[in-house]
Design a binder for these strands. Structure first.
Lengths: 156, 156
DNA sequence: GTAAACAGGACCGACGCGGTCCACAATGTG
DNA sequence: CACATTGTGGACCGCGTCGGTCCTGTTTAC
């Protein structure tokens, strides 16, 4: 199922949310807004900062803000930031020694075109595409929760 | 890293090998040829048979053979057969109840376009593309067709 | 100087995957 | 007809990785 890590999912949520809150925002605040546990948000933001997708401001009244507008951030960047380089199989990208059946494996390294195709696809799609209004978005508006969050979406 | 399961990798190897051995081939034989442990090969072949990518023949002198020529089998099919449906995040495809932050998650379901893009990319590429001439391929490959292969990728 | 907030780790439990094994059903062969 | 061969379906288990938490600095505004 091509498992994408949950952290990456969180990262997208956080980034989109970060876009809604213009200016510097703290990770506790983002945690509250998104419903993601605070330590996890912090972890994600650290990784995103390391990848220079967000810029951090330390100290009191510090926080994070987007380094680029959403439409300039391809999902591929987010995935790379959290999950590391995008590649399907372990025995690619010259991961020598990993594949014990080196001598036998007839398609060694042949995943490369597949990886390339996926990277290309993921580079085309930006975060702006992911926050775009779904027609059915109002269906998800849960009644049993005021959900302050969705304001950010409705605004757009 | 978009981790693809090792089993899927094996599946591709086995399928390509199966193409090389024309006619019915037993799983022990394939195991020996590929260097993959026999029980694992059997497991993979079961899944592939269930997905109708290979056809099985039971009983003595039984075995497996390809249901389709390699160039008719997109990698997406193989991945689906082994790993299940292709989708990145868990909280997509109406996986209700999975996402506990339903009420809060602002981009619920927004992975869909990404999944679609990836499926599309993986459907373009067939197994024939993956057995395509590696520099060292002549060491393993048996029947060498002119390999029309890369056309689909070169388009991009 | 103090509090707020990020930085960078270590740490742990849970889940899934890779891998193995077993009892059973089907089928060709002597 | 009996037996050997081979796929079928399932259970089972250890290990690695990931999600999640916590703790100790370090930076900076007030």
């Amino acid at each position: 199922m091509l498992r994408l890590s949950k952290l990456t999912d969180y990262a997208v949520v956080v980034l989109v949310r970060l876009d809604a809150c213009h200016g510097v925002t703290t990770s506790p605040s983002l945690a509250q807004d998104t419903g993601i546990p605070e330590p996890t948000v912090a972890k994600v933001l650290k990784a995103l900062a390391a990848a220079e997708l967000v810029v951090s401001q330390r100290g009191a009244r510090g926080g994070y803000r987007l380094a680029l507008p959403l439409h300039r951030i391809p999902v591929a960047e987010v995935i790379s930031a959290i999950d590391g380089p995008i590649s399907l199989a372990a025995c690619v990208d010259g991961a020598t020694g990993g594949c014990e059946a080196q001598g036998l494996c007839p398609i060694r390294g042949r995943w490369d075109p597949v990886n390339e195709a996926i990277r290309e696809a993921l580079t085309r799609i930006t975060l702006a595409d992911m926050r775009a209004p779904t027609p059915a978005s109002h269906l998800f508006d849960i009644d049993h929760q005021p959900a302050p969050v969705r304001a950010s979406l409705a605004a757009e």
